[in-house]
Design a protein around this nucleic acid. Structure first.
Length: 273
DNA sequence: AGAGGTACCTGGCAGC
DNA sequence: TGCTGCCAGGTACCTC
C-alpha cells in the first residue's frame, strides 16, 4: 500500500507521539516479516529514547542514542499509535511500547514489511547504501536523470522505479508522472531528451508534494483511529483507469504490463521524447 | 554492466 | 455459497 507520500505522512503522523519518548519494551508477535525481526531488537531498543523520526526512501528511521531502527512498510504495512493494552488483531505483528503507556503498533497483512537494527550511521546500512537521491531532494534533477540514462535501453518507467537511480518512486506515481510529462512509458530511458527529463522531475516533485499535502489532512487518524491511517483519496489521472477516457483527449487509457507491473497511459498524450 | 525474472505473503475480487 | 485463479501501491536478489 504505502508509496513515498504515505510513508512521509506516516512519519509526520507518528513523530509527535514518539519523539522524546522512552521505549519500555518491544513486543514481537510474529517474527516472520520479509526478513526475520532481529532477536536483539528488544534489548537494543529497550530503555532507549527516540531522538528523531527520519525517512530515507520508503524506510522510516527511528534514531536513538544506541542505534537506529530501520522500518519498511512493504506493500501492506501501516503504523498507529495505540494504548499499549489495546488487544492486538491478527496482523498486528510488532508493538514498540513506550513508558507513557502508549505503543507504536505495526500492522502488516502481507508481511512484506521489515525491521532492521543498526548501530552505525543508517546511511551505511546495506539497504540504504546504494539508494539513489531522494526525489524531493536537490540532487535529483533532469540533468542527473539525463546523464544516468545515456546509452540505457531499459524503458523509462522501470528506470525511474529503480531505487538505485532515484529512491521511492512507486508504481502509481511512476504512471502518473509519466502521464503528466507526456512521456510514453516504454520509451528507452536513453532516448529521452534533457528537456523532457527536466519536465519529468518537475512533475514527480509536484505529484509527490500534492499527495503529501493531502495526507496531512488525515494525520489525526494515526492515534487510536479506525480504518487505515494516513491514506487518502489521491486524484489520479491514469492509474487504475484502463478503458476510461483520458481527461485531456478522451482517448481510452491503456493498460499494459511492464516487468510484471501494471502500467496505465494515454496513447495519444504520451508520445514525446 | 544491464536487463529481466523470481521470491516473499495474505486478502479481495471476478468468474464459474 | 464455495471454489479457483488472478491481482495488488515493494524491492532484494538471482540468472542470463
Amino acid at each position: 500500500m504505502p508509496e513515498l507520500p504515505e510513508v512521509e505522512t506516516t512519519r509526520r503522523g507518528i513523530a509527535p507521539y514518539i519523539t522524546g519518548k522512552t521505549v519500555a519494551q518491544v513486543v514481537v508477535r510474529n517474527r516472520h516479516l520479509r526478513w526475520p525481526v532481529p532477536q536483539r531488537l528488544g534489548s537494543e531498543l529497550g530503555g532507549q529514547l527516540i531522538e528523531a523520526v527520519g525517512r530515507r526512501a520508503k524506510y522510516l528511521l527511528l534514531a536513538t542514542g544506541n542505534g537506529t531502527l530501520l522500518l519498511h512498510l512493504g506493500m501492506s504495512g501501516s503504523l498507529r499509535i495505540i494504548e499499549a493494552a489495546a488487544p492486538p488483531g491478527k496482523h498486528d505483528h510488532v508493538d514498540i511500547v513506550f513508558t507513557d503507556g502508549y505503543a507504536l503498533r505495526l500492522t502488516d497483512p502481507r508481511r512484506f514489511g521489515s525491521l532492521h537494527w543498526t548501530r552505525r550511521p543508517p546511511e551505511q546500512h546495506r539497504l540504504l547504501r546504494d539508494l539513489g537521491p531522494e526525489p524531493l531532494g536537490e540532487a535529483f534533477s533532469g540533468a542527473y536523470l539525463h546523464q544516468l540514462s545515456r546509452g540505457r535501453k531499459v524503458a523509462v518507467k522501470p528506470f525511474i522505479m529503480n531505487s538505485r537511480i532515484v529512491a521511492g518512486i512507486g508504481n502509481i506515481y511512476a504512471c502518473e508522472a509519466l502521464y503528466m510529462a507526456g512521456i510514453y512509458p516504454k520509451r528507452a530511458a536513453g532516448r529521452i531528451s534533457r528537456r523532457k527529463y527536466d519536465l519529468l522531475v518537475e512533475v514527480i516533485r509536484e505529484v509527490l508534494n500534492d499527495s503529501i499535502d493531502q495526507g496531512g489532512t488525515t494525520l489525526r487518524d494515526f492515534v487510536n483511529g479506525h480504518g487505515e491511517p494516513g491514506y487518502f483519496r489521491l486524484h489520479l489521472n491514469v492509474y487504475g483507469k484502463g478503458g476510461e477516457p483520458c481527461i485531456s483527449c478522451r482517448e481510452p487509457i491503456r493498460e499494459i504490463r511492464q516487468g510484471q507491473r501494471s502500467t496505465f497511459y494515454c496513447p495519444v498524450c504520451q508520445k514525446s521524447a
